[in-house]
Design a protein around this nucleic acid. Structure first.
Lengths: 125, 125
DNA sequence: TTCATTAGTTCATATATTACGAACTAATGA
DNA sequence: TCATTAGTTCGTAATATATGAACTAATGAA
């Protein structure tokens, strides 16, 4: 496990296009949706189980890096693992309703496809 | 000017990630914002004037293609020009509030940067 | 301590994507 | 008929992405 310091952009350096780009990948969007629903931290290994397709861990690691650098998640080393959580409140303060609206579209869409039944999420109302 | 038939995805084939990707580029986001504000059609040449940076027309042409294939715009040949308009109502019906929220964030952000002062837009309220 | 395990990162490289100038096409009008 | 305008297509250089393999760091046995 690497030991480089993890860089997180301050709120005012987070860009709209950066967020949109980060969320434009199905895997990353799923990770973020999971983080929102579970309201807890998630690590790469756990994320790999969330995503349906088989994914090499190097790819997953890179996805987390992109999410982190876009400012969407906050990562912290917990022993061997890297615990990541959504910077929801911050991002909603900077871009009101953005994340919640996007994720609502995502979950709605998933439900339409009948892939996974998910419980309703309070923040999305 | 090419004469290939222009393909537009039907509403049910438009994906959330496709939209997010299309809007994750500053030039394309600006084009879409302009379309929303002016509520009229826009063509490549006009778009080039909207965007501050110098942009070759081949690049601009490709941006319009990406927007079209993502389902964001409807293009129609008008003589020599290609008139494009936003598929706003359709997309809002499929992904409620998505486009309006993203564009609101964009315009707000632009105003913060003090680049361009824009009039308020009714749909964004 | 030593060694295996787990969790991620980094690296090298194969494979897309993207950007852009140049050549091309199609409509319009002098 | 020819020039102009508006885009498109093509070739290619520059970037970005995905992934297996090698590597590192923390943890927990033996």
């Amino acid at each position: 496990m690497g030991s480089r310091p993890l860089h997180h952009p301050p709120l005012d350096q987070i860009t709209l296009t950066g967020i949109l780009y980060a969320l434009s990948d199905p895997v990353r969007l799923t990770i973020v949706a999971t983080l929102l629903q579970q309201k807890t931290c998630l690590n790469c290994s756990a994320a790999l189980k969330q995503v349906k397709v088989k994914l090499p861990k190097s790819t997953c690691s890179q996805h987390f890096q992109i999410l982190r650098e876009a400012g969407l998640i906050l990562c912290e080393r917990k022993g061997v693992e890297l615990a990541s959580k959504l910077r929801l409140a911050e991002i909603e303060s900077r871009f009101p309703k953005l994340l919640s609206t996007i994720l609502k579209s995502h979950l709605q869409n998933e439900n339409n496809k009948g892939t996974v039944k998910r419980k309703k999420i309070s923040i999305l109302r």
